[in-house]
């Protein structure tokens, strides 16, 4: 189960498992983003390379207008996947306090 939506503070809140079957759902909302935005991953348990592709595609699109994604509350597992993928140099990422 994967859910994505806007939180009370305007952040984009993701929860559950972002696997290849859920990328279309993620992209539907991500394609609406036009300005610098924060993704809250506090309740996101899992991400695969397909989910990384969604993030990268959005970041590249936003960069064309000088905007960017910030990703906060990233769990240890996802943080390690970001590190292996070299995402720390192209995203502003904050780890979750665990």
């Amino acid at each position: 189960m994967f859910e994505i939506g806007y939180g009370d503070d305007g952040d984009i809140v993701c929860s559950g498992r972002l696997d290849a079957a859920q990328c279309e759902k993620a992209l539907l909302l991500m394609n609406e983003i036009a300005d610098t935005s924060t993704l809250d991953f506090a309740s996101l348990e899992y991400i695969s390379s397909a989910g990384l592709g969604v993030l990268l595609k959005t970041q590249k699109r936003l960069a064309e207008s000088g905007a960017a994604l910030k990703i906060i509350n990233v769990n240890n597992h996802i943080h390690d996947v970001f590190r292996y993928s070299g995402f720390h140099s192209i995203f502003d990422i904050e780890a979750k306090e665990e």
Partner: peptide, 24 residues
């Protein structure tokens, strides 16, 4: 082989899956 130090404009979505599992 994936250049994990490449800047954003040089990255393309895809190609990370096998790279990740070969490392994990």
């Amino acid at each position: 082989k994936v250049d994990t130090d490449a800047p954003l404009d040089a990255r393309t979505p895809g190609g990370l899956g096998l790279f990740l599992i070969q490392n994990l």
